[in-house]
């Protein structure tokens, strides 16, 4: 398969100006996603039209959200390139920047720097079956991917699309309205699951992601790829399931996270071996990861 590195990024927008300069954006809408209120989705609108045009991206990329006075934080882009006029980011409240972001309100001004990193290997995936496995709040770039793939202009490029997405409880699932909508469609095979629930009306799966994957996912073959994003514990137990189903390591695609500052491969902290997660990643095949020190 094509080696996924930034070198193969043909149509990357080159920031010859100042790659540290964020585009000013306005918070257009804030949606609380989960029942613990720790995840909010921000819809951001560019202050300058030209910036929006410059910001061309692919599903799987991330951006640095910039809060004046607080700092920056790398977050996967949850909106899809086929959605025009805005960007969406779903942010977990965890550190200094994200906590401050959670206290901001609609209309506030912040910055976005990007897009950054590589993306899911859409050229390679064309004509193939795609299995998407997501857990918890690591579903953001997967949402972007699904929206893109289901777009009328793109759907015919892929064969079967299967999604396994799980969260701790029904209230912790992201993008619930869209999940239900996708569930109803016949051009995508959805398997929503929760670890546990006491909701008697819950009509989807109950159970952890790995066993649900084992029951519902298609067999792996040379024409089937798996994209896996989730907490480390989910990934740890999903990997043997995929191996059992016949997925080879170069057909398992993952998105890594590491502490980042610059996002453009210069500040030097996010490396795994010689690869920089921010620039050469964050998307790697398991095969690539196997050949790299596990420092993430």
């Amino acid at each position: 398969m094509e080696v996924i590195t930034a070198d193969s990024a043909r149509d990357r927008v080159e920031h010859v100006e100042n790659p540290y300069m964020p585009y000013p954006v306005r918070i257009d809408e804030i949606v609380v996603e989960t029942e613990d209120r720790n995840l909010k989705t921000y819809t951001l609108v560019f202050l300058n039209k030209a910036d929006e045009e410059a910001f061309t991206y692919h599903a799987g990329q991330f951006a640095e959200l910039s809060l004046a006075g607080r700092g920056e934080i790398p977050i996967g882009i949850a909106s899809s390139p086929v959605e025009k006029g805005f960007l969406k980011f779903t942010v977990n409240k965890a550190g200094v920047v994200t906590t401050h972001l959670h206290n901001m309100k609609e209309g506030d001004i912040m910055g976005v720097r990007g897009p950054m990193g590589n993306w899911f290997p859409w050229d390679t995936l064309e004509g193939k079956n795609v299995l998407i496995i997501g857990g918890g709040f690591a579903f953001t770039t997967l949402r972007s991917s699904i929206i893109s793939m289901l777009h009328p202009a793109n759907r015919s490029k892929f064969n079967d699309i299967t999604v396994v997405y799980g969260a701790r409880t029904p209230g912790m699932l992201l993008y619930k309205d869209e999940l239900i909508e996708w569930e109803k469609r016949d051009d995508i095979d959805m398997h929503i699951t929760v670890d546990a629930t006491d909701d008697p009306d819950w009509k989807y799966n109950v159970g952890f992601v790995p066993p649900v994957t084992e029951q519902k996912a298609p067999q792996g073959d040379k024409d089937t790829y798996a994209i896996v994003c989730g907490p480390p514990i989910m990934i740890k137990f999903t990997q043997p399931v995929l191996e059992k189903l016949g997925y080879t390591h170069d057909h398992i695609i993952m998105s890594l996270e590491n502490r980042m500052k610059c996002g453009i491969g210069m500040c030097g902290r996010c490396n795994i071996g010689k690869e920089l997660v921010c620039k050469d990643g964050p998307i790697f095949t398991l095969d690539q990861i196997n050949r790299t020190p596990r420092e993430y």
Binding site: Y20, L67, G71, C262, C267, R269, C270
Partner: peptide
């Protein structure tokens, strides 16, 4: 390097400082 924001009153600056892979908080 590391990137830091610092605010004094209403005026802020974004600065960068050398950082070191020897420091535990680096990663």
């Amino acid at each position: 390097f590391d990137i830091q924001d610092e605010v004094h009153g209403k005026q802020g600056k974004r600065t960068r400082n050398w950082d070191s892979c020897m420091f535990p908080i680096f990663t």
